[in-house]
Design a binder for these strands. Structure first.
Length: 837
DNA sequence: CGAGGGCATGGAT
DNA sequence: AATCCATGCCCTC
């Protein structure tokens, strides 16, 4: 090949096959080979072209050349030192290489990557695929990625694939060869794919596993969607123990029923992998790795870092785009990047500022400011020639496309609209699409949002619980509340800025909770009947309104083995007995007690004696404590607990500023340990936010109050025990089968049950818990927000005033959040019910 | 004098 | 603190 150096200058100018080992003349329509650094394809004669397309090129012509290595997995020989086969292997961390086929097998991919709705995806529509999770394909790499240039940007390439219109099967481009460029090992999972029908093929292997691009996913794709999605409760009836929200398969025959969900998920699927967010999750100490790997595949840290550089520019193609682009079913479209037009871009300057990284990665390298002309084709097939150039700027470069005015005018684009750049194969022509801000789906309106807004919610479903209905959407809504705000902020400056959303990475919270842990936390919105959709074997209960936070309860089993629950009236604080199956709204009062009419009024006497209640509560706390201990032994459970905490956090998130993960150590409260889910740790930093009123009944305040009372109650109990020297534990009645950790419960539930209303806060008319603690208890200690159920021996003397400050901050933030949610049309009945006076 | 090119500036990340 | 990039300003034609 080296002898073809001359020819390399211009493959197209030579009549001889580009293959150095071949002297044949090219045909009139030479076959295109690998991508050259000049931006052209190596033009080959038919024979060589076919060999190349069939992946036999190196075998045929480079068999004696150096650089052959064997796949560590299957032993297959791969020509590693050659541009032609640069895609055919990945470098292994420990050394050696692995062929793409094996690499693919070793990758855990998302179960499904939602693609556009079936209705849009007619076989006649040529679809290209957007590998949302992948990084950009360099100019040299795209679309063939055949380039051994060491100067290639270290970005994950987008893997082009095409759709066979006859079969509906998407497959990789030419010769079905996956393109995984070296020199770095690029995991398949790093290349999220969107697919409609059939399977995306990597080589000859169909990939049916989960393909989850990043958490928005960065993933997941994205699991994070830019816009609030309709809550859809997930019900799993299959054996898959866990699933990601975004991993929804949409099949033709499920189209109708799934459309709603699918469309939502589709939006999510367009999200690029939230590598950054993944990273953030880890940093936050949330152990989501397992889930991450399962749902999104492994994303190497460094890869994530690179990916995130581009995340904001990952193109999202709409079905319209596809239809526009795809006219030829044999075309392969490699998405490159997109750019939201700034006022300057859309102005008369005729200059379109290109993101530097994208320009350098996707466009041909230019060394002179004058740059070079680029031919671009628009959706109508019209060709435009732009001058791709740069200006020196601060020891750097500012890349621009000049001469774009006619094109932009032709497309009737304006500031805020998004132009997308792709590469069309064969031909390697640049394709320029666009997305009107005014008509684009909400989620499409901000191009940076995709990664930035990415929020992934993965709910682990307990298969043992057939009544499981996912709280996912609730969590999702909460999660998305922030993105919404960020988007709002961003949109406000959308015309002039196309920046990254503030929540880009740190805000990415991947919520993982077990189904059991979620029990009792969420309820479907009242008076709502879910529509059931089945996607990939999972039943999704879809509600138009978000589920609500449920009221905590104490589950018990009576002597007859019948399960029931004790619930506390919000008004009179009496505990009422209800069937375990009764779903409770976040605010439950005696009047709601239809099961026991005799106690459907607050005037009715409480069924439990004070002692019984105490025992009950003690048991409850004990169970929670045990659970917590157990959780500490089981990382997965820990993560689940944290997930709940996170859920609680979300409830009070107000702006784009991410709260420290519950598991994240905080320096503000040295006593807190990683994993601490106390009221302090779930709050924003002290000093921020508004104050809580003394009458505040928000989550935080109630949590504080309740915890305090729990503590007092237990202390009293212990004291009495000590005095009487009786063994209380021996006669404890069976109790809660499944109780969430106290902290989790409180933080996640709006309506909290005071352990003992009669001696609780209510008495302390002082709304200030700090006052309460100091006056109404035998223990003059102060409320220790840090306390752990199992470690309350030594109430801490934390500064009550600062605690209240935190409390107040959190309350106000929470309130604002609620207002925002309700005003944003995503009203959450549960939340609203819990709003403070 | 206006249009457009090139660079500098400053906000945002 | 460094970098990116939207935009403004100045210069040239």
């Amino acid at each position: 090949m080296s002898t073809s150096a001359a020819a390399a200058l211009s493959s197209s100018s030579s009549k001889i096959c580009y293959n150095a080992e071949c002297t044949e003349l090219k045909s009139e329509r030479p076959r295109k080979g690998w991508w050259l650094s000049t931006g052209e394809f190596a033009e080959l004669c038919d024979r060589c072209g076919i060999a190349y397309e069939e992946g036999r090129f190196c075998d045929a012509f480079h068999s004696n050349a150096p650089g052959w290595s064997s796949c560590k997995s299957c032993g297959k020989r791969v020509h590693c030192g050659c541009i032609v086969s640069a895609h055919a292997f990945t470098l292994l961390d420990p050394g050696g290489i692995e062929c793409v086929a094996c690499a693919g097998k070793n990758v855990v991919l998302g179960q499904n990557v939602p693609w556009s709705g079936p209705l849009v995806f007619q076989s006649s529509v040529k679809s290209w695929s957007h590998l949302a999770g992948s990084g950009p394909v360099s100019w040299q790499q795209a679309p063939t990625l055949f380039n051994s240039s060491a100067s290639q940007p270290e970005f994950h390439p987008r893997v082009p694939y095409e759709v066979d219109s006859s079969t509906g099967i998407e497959r990789l481009g030419a010769s079905e060869k996956p393109f995984f460029p070296s020199p770095e090992k690029r995991k398949i999972e790093s290349f999220p794919k969107r697919r409609m029908n059939g399977s995306l093929k990597f080589g000859t292997r169909d990939i049916h596993e989960n393909v989850h691009p990043g958490i928005n996913g960065e993933e997941e794709p994205w699991s994070c969607s830019n816009k609030p999605q309709q809550p859809s409760l997930l019900k799993q009836d299959q054996s898959n123990p866990q699933f990601g929200l975004a991993s929804t398969h949409t099949s033709q025959d499920e189209t109708n029923s799934q459309q709603g969900v699918a469309s939502n998920l589709f939006q999510s699927s367009l999200q690029p992998p939230l590598a950054k967010q993944f990273h953030g999750s880890q940093q936050n100490g949330l152990d989501f790795l397992n889930e991450t790997q399962i749902h999104y595949g492994r994303l190497r840290p460094e890869a994530l870092g690179r990916n995130q550089l581009f995340s904001q520019f990952w193109p999202r193609f709409t079905d319209q785009d596809l239809q526009q682009i795809t006219g030829d079913s044999n075309s392969i479209i490699t998405p490159l990047f997109e750019k939201m037009l700034s006022a300057s871009d859309a102005g008369r300057s005729g200059r379109l500022v290109l993101p530097k990284k994208c320009a350098e990665a996707y466009f041909p390298p230019i060394s002179q400011p004058e740059g070079l002309p680029l031919e671009v084709q628009d959706a109508k097939g019209k060709e435009w020639t732009f001058q791709f150039r740069f200006w020196p700027n601060n020891n750097s470069r500012m890349y621009v496309l000049e001469g774009v005015t006619p094109c932009i005018q032709n497309m009737q684009l304006q500031a805020g609209d998004v132009v997308t750049f792709s590469r069309l194969e064969p031909g390697g022509k640049l394709f320029m699409g666009y997305r009107k801000a005014s008509t684009a789906p909400a989620s499409d309106q901000d191009n940076e949002g995709r990664a930035a807004n990415g929020v992934s919610v993965v709910v682990k479903v307990d298969l043992a619980d057939p009544t499981s209905w996912s709280k996912v959407d609730k969590a999702k809504d909460a999660l998305e509340a922030k993105p919404m705000i960020s988007r709002k902020r961003k949109n406000s400056m959308l015309v002039s800025k196309s920046k990254h959303v503030k929540i880009d990475n740190g805000d990415l919270i991947k919520l993982k909770i077990t189904w059991e842990d979620a029990q009792g936390l969420l309820r479907p919105p009242p008076n709502h009947i879910p529509s059931i959709v089945v996607i990939e074997g999972f039943e999704f209960e879809e509600y138009k309104d978000a589920p609500i936070l449920g009221k905590p309860k104490i589950l018990v089993t009576d002597n007859a083995g019948e399960k029931f629950q004790w619930v506390e009236c919000e008004d009179c604080f009496k505990w009422r007995k209800l069937p375990a199956s009764t779903l409770l709204p976040s605010r439950w009062t005696c009047s709601s007690n239809s099961w026991d009419p005799s106690r459907s009024s607050c005037s009715a006497a409480e069924e439990l004696s004070a002692e019984q209640l105490e025992d009950l509560l003690l048991q409850s706390n004990s169970a929670a404590s045990e659970k917590m201990k157990a959780a500490k032994r089981e990382p997965e459970s820990v993560a689940a607990s944290e997930g709940l905490d996170t859920l609680a956090n979300l409830a009070i998130l107000e702006d784009g500023e991410a709260l420290p993960a519950s598991s994240q150590a905080t320096t503000r409260h040295p006593r807190h340990r990683p994993g601490c889910s106390c009221i302090v740790c779930i709050q924003p930093p002290s000093g921020k936010g508004p104050k809580h009123k003394q009458t505040c009944t928000c989550n935080v305040c109630q949590t504080v109050k309740r915890r305090f009372h729990t503590l007092m109650l237990r202390r009293e109990k212990k004291q009495s025990q000590k005095e009487s020297e009786t063994e209380r534990k021996k006669h404890q009645p069976p109790l809660p089968e499944k109780l969430l950790d106290d902290d989790c419960l409180t933080s996640s539930n709006a309506g909290n049950s005071n352990p003992n209303p009669k001696r609780v806060v209510s008495k302390s008319s002082d709304d200030d818990p700090s006052k309460t603690k100091s006056s109404s208890t035998p223990f003059k200690g102060q409320i220790d927000l840090n306390i752990q159920p199992e470690k309350e021996e030594e109430p801490s003397l934390s500064d009550s005033s600062s605690m209240m400050k935190l409390l107040q901050d959190a309350t106000e933030r929470y309130l604002r959040q609620q207002e925002l949610q309700s005003s944003g049309g995503t009203s959450n009945s549960g939340v609203s019910q819990t709003q403070p006076d």
